[in-house]
Computed example of a mutant assay.
Amino acid sequence: MPPRTLRNALIRALTVLVMAAVGSTAAVVVGAAPAHADGCYTWTRNLSTGTSGEDVRQLQIRVAGWPGYGGFITIDGVFGQQTHDAVVRFQSAYGLGADGIAGAQTYSKIYSLQDDDCTPVHFAYSELNTCNSTWAGGNVSAATAKANALKVMWRLEALRHALGDQPIRVTSGFRSQACNAAVGGASDSQHLYGNSADLGAGSHTLCTMAKEARYHGFNGILGPGYPDHSDHVHADIRASRLWSASQCF
């Protein structure tokens, strides 16, 4: 038997013996193996309350859609109570052990939910920008507008999952000043910052989406009953809260 084949056979035999000896404990060890990412981002350590860094910031972007009713997570790279609670809700939503510690299982789920460009699998930059593919011409730099749109998309992914994983139709996202003026948008519209998405009726009614959006990190929610919003729900991540959809809530 060639040396490599013999070595592999010995490894398999040893594995069987160890699993038989320690039972379920072996399964736990195997299951705890480090998760490997796609082409976007790889976490290399467990994160919990008190940790900080770029890896925390990347985590916050992906769990910011799970802050609870009226909650909002600041993407600052500091793992505080809000981040802990959002991780717990994310874990619960996807059937994971809800301990508030981001580790291999949490990362594996995130990896399964994102594409190589960091966008969630059910949304794309093209959906959030039908106006100007360069992301230029708004009220912030192109890079900032695109980064803001990514934060919006992860909140939309949370909203989509909470509503039974049925498609959500995005009708408008980032707008340059020219595009915003052409559609009659407000001069300080959140669309100019890449901070918002307009949602059209489809799998869900407008009011269903407006009501559920209150649980998923949207400080701005404008829907039926608000002027010029009878045919869509506007959801954004502005700094202060503005919820107005009198026909819904």
Rank of each mutant, 00 (worst) to 15 (best):
A158R: 11
H36S: 11
A201M: 04
P34G: 02
L242D: 07
L17A: 14
N180T: 06
L128M: 08
N148T: 07
G80F: 06
A93L: 03
L192A: 00
A142S: 11
K151F: 02
A124G: 04
F249K: 00
Q177S: 14
G202Q: 01
A27C: 08
T119F: 13
V22C: 08
S230W: 09
Y111V: 12
D165T: 13
T15E: 06
D85N: 15
P67Y: 04
Q58I: 04
F90Q: 06
S172I: 06
V16E: 13
V29C: 05
R160H: 02
C207S: 08
L222R: 03
Q177T: 08
V29R: 14
L113V: 02
G39N: 03
E212H: 10
D188G: 03
T44Q: 10
Q81N: 11
L6I: 13
G23W: 14
N180V: 12
W66Y: 14
A149F: 06
L59F: 04
K146S: 14
R175C: 11
C40D: 13
V87M: 01
H234N: 11
Q60R: 10
G184M: 01
S133D: 13
V56F: 10
G217R: 01
Q177I: 15
G65M: 02
G220W: 01
L6D: 05
A136D: 15
V88N: 02
A37S: 09
E54M: 13
T83D: 14
P224L: 04
R175D: 12
L47M: 13
A158K: 06
Q82H: 14
S141D: 15
H84Y: 15
S92K: 13
M153E: 05
L242P: 00
D198L: 06
Q91E: 15
R45A: 14
P227V: 00
V78C: 05
F123P: 05
G103I: 04
M153I: 05
Y107V: 04
G70S: 00
N148F: 10
V233N: 08
V140H: 03
C131S: 11
L113P: 05
G65A: 00
V152Q: 05
D55F: 12
S230A: 15
A162G: 03
L17G: 00
G103F: 00
H204P: 04
I110P: 04
G95V: 07
G95K: 07
T205F: 02
L163W: 09
Y94P: 01
S126V: 07
A142P: 12
V170G: 01
V183F: 11
S176Y: 11
Q114I: 02
N180L: 06
Y107K: 04
A9E: 11
S108E: 07
F90H: 13
T49I: 14
H36Y: 09
G137L: 11
V28N: 09
P2E: 02
A20E: 08
G95L: 02
A9F: 07
D76K: 04
L159T: 03
T119R: 03
T51Y: 12
S176D: 07
D85P: 07
R57Q: 14
V56C: 08
S196V: 03
Q60E: 15
L59M: 01
V88Q: 00
L14G: 09
G194Y: 02
G185R: 09
I11A: 13
E54S: 15
G184P: 00
L14P: 03
S112A: 14
F218R: 01
T144D: 11
Q60N: 07
A98G: 08
A27Q: 03
L59T: 15
